[in-house]
Design a protein around this nucleic acid. Structure first.
Lengths: 137, 137
DNA sequence: TTTATATATAACTAAATTAGTTATATTATA
DNA sequence: TATAATATAACTAATTTAGTTATATATAAA
Protein backbone atom coordinates (compact mmCIF):
# COMPACT_ATOMS: atom_id res chain seq x y z
CA UNK A 1 0.00 0.00 0.00
CA UNK A 2 1.10 3.51 -0.81
CA UNK A 3 0.77 5.36 2.48
CA UNK A 4 -0.72 8.74 3.12
CA UNK A 5 2.72 9.96 4.06
CA UNK A 6 4.03 9.14 0.61
CA UNK A 7 1.03 10.87 -0.91
CA UNK A 8 1.67 13.91 1.27
CA UNK A 9 5.31 13.98 0.23
CA UNK A 10 4.30 13.99 -3.42
CA UNK A 11 1.85 16.82 -2.78
CA UNK A 12 4.53 18.80 -0.96
CA UNK A 13 6.93 18.43 -3.88
CA UNK A 14 4.23 19.29 -6.39
CA UNK A 15 3.34 22.38 -4.39
CA UNK A 16 6.96 23.52 -4.36
CA UNK A 17 7.23 22.79 -8.07
CA UNK A 18 4.16 24.87 -8.83
CA UNK A 19 6.11 28.03 -8.00
CA UNK A 20 8.96 29.61 -9.95
CA UNK A 21 12.26 27.81 -9.50
CA UNK A 22 14.02 28.88 -6.31
CA UNK A 23 10.93 30.15 -4.50
CA UNK A 24 11.11 29.67 -0.76
CA UNK A 25 7.97 28.58 1.08
CA UNK A 26 7.54 27.78 4.75
CA UNK A 27 6.49 24.32 5.81
CA UNK A 28 3.57 25.87 7.64
CA UNK A 29 2.31 27.51 4.48
CA UNK A 30 2.45 24.20 2.64
CA UNK A 31 0.66 22.46 5.48
CA UNK A 32 -2.08 25.06 5.56
CA UNK A 33 -2.57 25.22 1.84
CA UNK A 34 -2.63 21.48 1.28
CA UNK A 35 -4.37 20.50 4.53
CA UNK A 36 -1.55 18.33 5.79
CA UNK A 37 -0.82 18.12 9.54
CA UNK A 38 2.00 20.60 10.12
CA UNK A 39 4.36 18.31 11.96
CA UNK A 40 3.96 15.67 9.34
CA UNK A 41 5.16 18.11 6.73
CA UNK A 42 8.25 18.76 8.80
CA UNK A 43 8.80 15.06 9.28
CA UNK A 44 8.51 14.36 5.58
CA UNK A 45 10.74 17.26 4.62
CA UNK A 46 13.55 15.58 6.53
CA UNK A 47 13.35 12.67 4.07
CA UNK A 48 12.94 14.86 1.02
CA UNK A 49 16.02 16.74 2.08
CA UNK A 50 17.90 13.50 2.62
CA UNK A 51 17.08 12.56 -0.96
CA UNK A 52 18.56 15.86 -2.09
CA UNK A 53 15.30 17.15 -3.53
CA UNK A 54 14.76 20.04 -1.14
CA UNK A 55 16.75 22.23 1.20
CA UNK A 56 15.68 24.45 4.05
CA UNK A 57 16.96 27.64 5.55
CA UNK A 58 16.15 28.39 9.17
CA UNK A 59 15.12 31.47 10.98
CA UNK A 60 12.77 34.29 10.05
CA UNK A 61 12.30 34.57 6.30
CA UNK A 62 13.51 30.98 6.09
CA UNK A 63 11.68 28.12 4.47
CA UNK A 64 11.95 25.29 1.99
CA UNK A 65 12.91 25.31 -1.64
CA UNK A 66 13.15 22.76 -4.38
CA UNK A 67 16.73 21.84 -5.18
CA UNK A 68 16.30 20.01 -8.45
CA UNK A 69 14.34 20.14 -11.66
CA UNK A 70 10.94 18.61 -10.85
CA UNK A 71 11.09 16.73 -14.12
CA UNK A 72 13.86 14.64 -12.60
CA UNK A 73 11.70 13.29 -9.75
CA UNK A 74 9.19 10.56 -10.45
CA UNK A 75 6.46 9.26 -8.18
CA UNK A 76 8.02 5.87 -7.64
CA UNK A 77 11.16 7.52 -6.29
CA UNK A 78 9.21 9.60 -3.81
CA UNK A 79 7.06 6.71 -2.65
CA UNK A 80 10.06 4.48 -2.09
CA UNK A 81 11.93 7.22 -0.28
CA UNK A 82 9.05 7.66 2.17
CA UNK A 83 7.62 4.16 2.50
CA UNK A 84 10.70 2.12 1.71
CA UNK A 85 10.71 -0.52 -1.01
CA UNK A 86 7.18 -1.32 -2.08
CA UNK A 87 5.51 -4.68 -1.95
CA UNK A 88 1.98 -5.45 -3.03
CA UNK A 89 2.23 -8.59 -0.89
CA UNK A 90 4.28 -9.59 2.11
CA UNK A 91 5.85 -12.22 -0.08
CA UNK A 92 7.64 -9.53 -2.04
CA UNK A 93 10.65 -7.56 -0.80
CA UNK A 94 10.15 -8.75 2.70
CA UNK A 95 13.09 -10.66 4.12
CA UNK A 96 10.77 -13.67 4.49
CA UNK A 97 10.54 -15.58 1.22
CA UNK A 98 8.17 -18.52 0.83
CA UNK A 99 8.73 -21.46 3.16
CA UNK A 100 8.90 -24.05 0.45
CA UNK A 101 12.25 -23.62 -1.15
CA UNK A 102 10.94 -24.76 -4.51
CA UNK A 103 10.36 -21.97 -6.96
CA UNK A 104 7.26 -20.03 -5.97
CA UNK A 105 5.15 -19.44 -9.03
CA UNK A 106 2.87 -17.01 -7.26
CA UNK A 107 5.81 -14.81 -6.47
CA UNK A 108 6.49 -14.33 -10.16
CA UNK A 109 2.94 -13.19 -10.70
CA UNK A 110 3.02 -10.73 -7.80
CA UNK A 111 6.26 -9.45 -9.16
CA UNK A 112 4.88 -8.94 -12.64
CA UNK A 113 1.77 -7.18 -11.31
CA UNK A 114 3.87 -4.94 -9.14
CA UNK A 115 6.28 -4.02 -11.91
CA UNK A 116 3.35 -3.14 -14.09
CA UNK A 117 2.09 -0.74 -11.42
CA UNK A 118 5.52 0.72 -10.78
CA UNK A 119 6.10 1.42 -14.44
CA UNK A 120 3.13 3.78 -14.38
CA UNK A 121 4.40 5.54 -11.27
CA UNK A 122 7.87 5.73 -12.73
CA UNK A 123 6.57 7.48 -15.80
CA UNK A 124 4.86 10.34 -13.95
CA UNK A 125 7.06 13.18 -12.74
CA UNK A 126 6.51 15.84 -10.10
CA UNK A 127 6.61 18.38 -12.90
CA UNK A 128 3.65 16.83 -14.66
CA UNK A 129 1.73 16.62 -11.44
CA UNK A 130 2.45 20.20 -10.47
CA UNK A 131 1.11 21.35 -13.82
CA UNK A 132 -2.08 19.37 -13.41
CA UNK A 133 -2.49 20.75 -9.92
CA UNK A 134 -1.88 24.31 -11.06
CA UNK A 135 -4.38 24.02 -13.87
CA UNK A 136 -7.15 22.90 -11.58
CA UNK A 137 -6.94 26.00 -9.40
CA UNK B 1 -1.89 -4.59 -0.13
CA UNK B 2 -2.80 -8.11 -1.06
CA UNK B 3 -3.16 -9.88 2.27
CA UNK B 4 -1.85 -13.25 3.25
CA UNK B 5 -5.40 -14.46 3.52
CA UNK B 6 -5.99 -13.71 -0.15
CA UNK B 7 -2.75 -15.46 -0.99
CA UNK B 8 -3.84 -18.47 1.07
CA UNK B 9 -7.20 -18.53 -0.69
CA UNK B 10 -5.47 -18.65 -4.05
CA UNK B 11 -3.22 -21.45 -2.88
CA UNK B 12 -6.24 -23.39 -1.60
CA UNK B 13 -7.99 -23.09 -4.95
CA UNK B 14 -4.84 -24.00 -6.85
CA UNK B 15 -4.40 -27.04 -4.64
CA UNK B 16 -7.97 -28.17 -5.33
CA UNK B 17 -7.47 -27.53 -9.02
CA UNK B 18 -4.34 -29.62 -9.10
CA UNK B 19 -6.44 -32.78 -8.62
CA UNK B 20 -8.85 -34.39 -11.07
CA UNK B 21 -12.15 -32.55 -11.32
CA UNK B 22 -14.55 -33.56 -8.53
CA UNK B 23 -11.89 -34.79 -6.13
CA UNK B 24 -12.84 -34.24 -2.49
CA UNK B 25 -10.12 -33.13 -0.11
CA UNK B 26 -10.43 -32.24 3.57
CA UNK B 27 -9.59 -28.76 4.74
CA UNK B 28 -7.12 -30.28 7.16
CA UNK B 29 -5.26 -31.99 4.35
CA UNK B 30 -4.97 -28.73 2.45
CA UNK B 31 -3.79 -26.93 5.57
CA UNK B 32 -1.16 -29.54 6.25
CA UNK B 33 0.08 -29.80 2.69
CA UNK B 34 0.29 -26.07 2.10
CA UNK B 35 1.37 -25.01 5.60
CA UNK B 36 -1.64 -22.80 6.23
CA UNK B 37 -3.12 -22.50 9.76
CA UNK B 38 -6.01 -24.97 9.80
CA UNK B 39 -8.67 -22.63 11.08
CA UNK B 40 -7.73 -20.05 8.53
CA UNK B 41 -8.39 -22.55 5.78
CA UNK B 42 -11.84 -23.14 7.21
CA UNK B 43 -12.45 -19.42 7.49
CA UNK B 44 -11.41 -18.80 3.90
CA UNK B 45 -13.42 -21.72 2.57
CA UNK B 46 -16.55 -19.99 3.84
CA UNK B 47 -15.86 -17.14 1.43
CA UNK B 48 -14.84 -19.38 -1.44
CA UNK B 49 -18.09 -21.25 -0.98
CA UNK B 50 -20.03 -17.99 -0.90
CA UNK B 51 -18.49 -17.13 -4.26
CA UNK B 52 -19.73 -20.43 -5.61
CA UNK B 53 -16.25 -21.76 -6.32
CA UNK B 54 -16.22 -24.60 -3.81
CA UNK B 55 -18.67 -26.72 -1.88
CA UNK B 56 -18.22 -28.87 1.18
CA UNK B 57 -19.81 -32.02 2.45
CA UNK B 58 -19.80 -32.66 6.17
CA UNK B 59 -19.21 -35.72 8.23
CA UNK B 60 -16.75 -38.55 7.87
CA UNK B 61 -15.50 -38.92 4.30
CA UNK B 62 -16.60 -35.36 3.74
CA UNK B 63 -14.44 -32.57 2.45
CA UNK B 64 -14.18 -29.79 -0.08
CA UNK B 65 -14.37 -29.90 -3.83
CA UNK B 66 -14.03 -27.39 -6.61
CA UNK B 67 -17.38 -26.50 -8.14
CA UNK B 68 -16.27 -24.72 -11.28
CA UNK B 69 -13.69 -24.93 -14.01
CA UNK B 70 -10.50 -23.41 -12.58
CA UNK B 71 -9.97 -21.59 -15.85
CA UNK B 72 -12.97 -19.44 -14.97
CA UNK B 73 -11.44 -18.05 -11.75
CA UNK B 74 -8.81 -15.34 -12.00
CA UNK B 75 -6.59 -14.00 -9.26
CA UNK B 76 -8.22 -10.60 -9.11
CA UNK B 77 -11.57 -12.21 -8.38
CA UNK B 78 -10.19 -14.25 -5.52
CA UNK B 79 -8.30 -11.35 -4.00
CA UNK B 80 -11.33 -9.09 -4.11
CA UNK B 81 -13.54 -11.79 -2.65
CA UNK B 82 -11.23 -12.19 0.33
CA UNK B 83 -9.86 -8.68 0.87
CA UNK B 84 -12.71 -6.67 -0.57
CA UNK B 85 -12.17 -4.09 -3.30
CA UNK B 86 -8.49 -3.32 -3.66
CA UNK B 87 -6.87 0.04 -3.29
CA UNK B 88 -3.18 0.79 -3.64
CA UNK B 89 -3.86 3.98 -1.66
CA UNK B 90 -6.49 5.02 0.84
CA UNK B 91 -7.59 7.60 -1.67
CA UNK B 92 -8.95 4.86 -3.90
CA UNK B 93 -12.12 2.88 -3.25
CA UNK B 94 -12.36 4.13 0.24
CA UNK B 95 -15.54 6.06 0.92
CA UNK B 96 -13.38 9.09 1.72
CA UNK B 97 -12.44 10.90 -1.46
CA UNK B 98 -10.06 13.85 -1.40
CA UNK B 99 -11.15 16.80 0.72
CA UNK B 100 -10.81 19.34 -2.04
CA UNK B 101 -13.75 18.79 -4.27
CA UNK B 102 -11.82 19.90 -7.32
CA UNK B 103 -10.68 17.11 -9.54
CA UNK B 104 -7.81 15.26 -7.92
CA UNK B 105 -5.11 14.65 -10.46
CA UNK B 106 -3.23 12.29 -8.22
CA UNK B 107 -6.25 10.06 -7.98
CA UNK B 108 -6.16 9.52 -11.72
CA UNK B 109 -2.58 8.39 -11.51
CA UNK B 110 -3.25 6.00 -8.64
CA UNK B 111 -6.14 4.67 -10.60
CA UNK B 112 -4.08 4.07 -13.71
CA UNK B 113 -1.32 2.37 -11.73
CA UNK B 114 -3.81 0.17 -9.99
CA UNK B 115 -5.62 -0.82 -13.16
CA UNK B 116 -2.30 -1.72 -14.67
CA UNK B 117 -1.62 -4.06 -11.76
CA UNK B 118 -5.10 -5.53 -11.78
CA UNK B 119 -4.93 -6.30 -15.48
CA UNK B 120 -2.05 -8.65 -14.76
CA UNK B 121 -3.91 -10.35 -11.94
CA UNK B 122 -7.02 -10.59 -14.06
CA UNK B 123 -5.12 -12.40 -16.77
CA UNK B 124 -3.86 -15.21 -14.55
CA UNK B 125 -6.27 -18.02 -13.76
CA UNK B 126 -6.31 -20.61 -11.01
CA UNK B 127 -5.84 -23.23 -13.71
CA UNK B 128 -2.56 -21.70 -14.87
CA UNK B 129 -1.36 -21.44 -11.33
CA UNK B 130 -2.29 -25.01 -10.46
CA UNK B 131 -0.30 -26.22 -13.43
CA UNK B 132 2.74 -24.24 -12.41
CA UNK B 133 2.43 -25.54 -8.87
CA UNK B 134 2.04 -29.13 -10.04
CA UNK B 135 5.08 -28.90 -12.27
CA UNK B 136 7.31 -27.73 -9.47
CA UNK B 137 6.64 -30.79 -7.34
C1' DT C 1 22.64 40.81 21.82
C1' DT C 2 18.24 39.21 22.46
C1' DT C 3 13.87 37.68 20.66
C1' DA C 4 11.06 35.51 17.43
C1' DT C 5 10.66 32.54 13.59
C1' DA C 6 11.81 28.96 11.22
C1' DT C 7 13.89 24.19 10.27
C1' DA C 8 15.60 19.71 12.31
C1' DT C 9 15.41 15.46 14.99
C1' DA C 10 13.59 12.03 17.93
C1' DA C 11 10.41 9.70 20.66
C1' DC C 12 5.91 8.67 21.66
C1' DT C 13 0.71 7.52 21.23
C1' DA C 14 -3.56 6.20 19.10
C1' DA C 15 -6.08 4.11 15.51
C1' DA C 16 -6.63 0.83 12.04
C1' DT C 17 -5.51 -3.32 9.78
C1' DT C 18 -3.92 -7.99 9.47
C1' DA C 19 -3.04 -12.55 11.09
C1' DG C 20 -4.20 -16.01 13.67
C1' DT C 21 -6.81 -18.35 17.65
C1' DT C 22 -10.58 -20.10 20.23
C1' DA C 23 -15.11 -21.67 20.92
C1' DT C 24 -19.27 -23.55 19.52
C1' DA C 25 -22.79 -25.29 16.37
C1' DT C 26 -24.24 -28.29 12.68
C1' DT C 27 -24.30 -32.22 9.60
C1' DA C 28 -23.67 -36.85 8.00
C1' DT C 29 -21.56 -41.27 7.91
C1' DA C 30 -20.04 -45.52 9.81
C1' DT D 1 -24.78 -42.87 18.80
C1' DA D 2 -20.02 -41.59 18.46
C1' DT D 3 -16.96 -39.46 15.41
C1' DA D 4 -15.24 -36.80 11.73
C1' DA D 5 -15.92 -33.37 9.07
C1' DT D 6 -17.68 -28.51 7.62
C1' DA D 7 -19.73 -23.99 9.21
C1' DT D 8 -20.05 -19.69 11.79
C1' DA D 9 -18.83 -16.20 15.00
C1' DA D 10 -16.23 -13.85 18.26
C1' DC D 11 -12.01 -12.79 20.13
C1' DT D 12 -6.84 -11.63 20.70
C1' DA D 13 -2.20 -10.36 19.44
C1' DA D 14 0.93 -8.34 16.36
C1' DT D 15 2.03 -5.09 13.01
C1' DT D 16 1.55 -1.02 10.42
C1' DT D 17 0.03 3.61 9.71
C1' DA D 18 -1.13 8.21 11.04
C1' DG D 19 -0.51 11.73 13.74
C1' DT D 20 1.27 14.15 18.13
C1' DT D 21 4.46 15.96 21.36
C1' DA D 22 8.76 17.58 22.89
C1' DT D 23 13.11 19.50 22.32
C1' DA D 24 17.16 21.24 19.92
C1' DT D 25 19.33 24.28 16.58
C1' DA D 26 20.02 28.06 13.43
C1' DT D 27 19.33 32.78 11.69
C1' DA D 28 17.31 37.15 10.64
C1' DA D 29 15.62 41.27 12.46
C1' DA D 30 14.77 44.50 16.15
Amino acid sequence: MITKKAEYAIIILAELASHPRGTIITSKAIARKRSIPGNLVVQLLALLKEAGWTSGTRGPSGGIKLNVDPVSINLKQVIEKIDGPMGITRCLFNANPCQDKTHCSLRDIWSEAQLSMLSVLERVTIKQLSEAVTESR
